[in-house]
Amino acid sequence: MKIIICISNVPDTTTKVKFVDNNSAFDTTGVQWIINPWDELALTRALELKEDANNPVSSVTVVTVGLKTSEPTLRKALAIGADDAIRVDFQPGDAYSVATQLAEVLKNNPYDIILNGIESSDYNGSSVGGMLAELLDMSSISAVSGIKLQGEEIKVTRDIDGGKEEISITAPFVGIVQKGIAKEPRIAAMRGIMMAKKKPITVVEPVAVDSLTEIAGFELPQSKAACKIIDADNVKELVELLRDEAKAI
């Protein structure tokens, strides 16, 4: 069984977001790039599945769509433990253009379990995983917070409003994962970092694709009015303000 994780290269979650060129483009100056947090959790779970000798997992691959500048993020995934990596040499446009590039790779290279994070922390579209599944005409399960293998059967936990469902499926399928899939992302050890340097990154030429959407510009949210501070000995006053001024309780 082969697992592949689609990885997005995103600004570190602590980045102070700024724009340039009259608010038409994200300012990448000084930005640290990381593996999208949900993708990192998916990778962690995939490695756990592979390490359990009861599971028939033969390899864990990562793939990203991006220019050469995204390779450090792939190296990080290799250092964490992925066996190999694929990069489609394409400047990401909208979600559809990214999903189309991924679909091309996966049509030529079948995998059994295809994992995506439920969203990326830059454009928050929650789109690529579902689009990829439809492009491949494959089943997908979204909001996945658990995956277990039992021989050929895959048991997937999906979060629903106020609960969870357990779903049975067989390969191939697309899993779109959220928090809970793994406890914490794995951190690369020195040995992993050294080994990652020798692991292969296959670079794939992109296909031609038109975006379905574009971004006409960005805006920063308006800053908020100052916080009204109430004395710690006068909690009742706060509760009264919430009732009478905010009318919120």
Binding site: G129, A133, L212
Partner: peptide, 24 residues
């Protein structure tokens, strides 16, 4: 909706209908 169900279906529908999506 941009809830779990909407997030699961809308992107698939986008491909099926070749329709651009604005989410959330």
């Amino acid at each position: 909706s941009n809830n779990n169900t909407g997030k699961a279906i809308a992107p698939r529908l986008s491909v099926k209908l070749k329709a651009g999506i604005a989410s959330g």
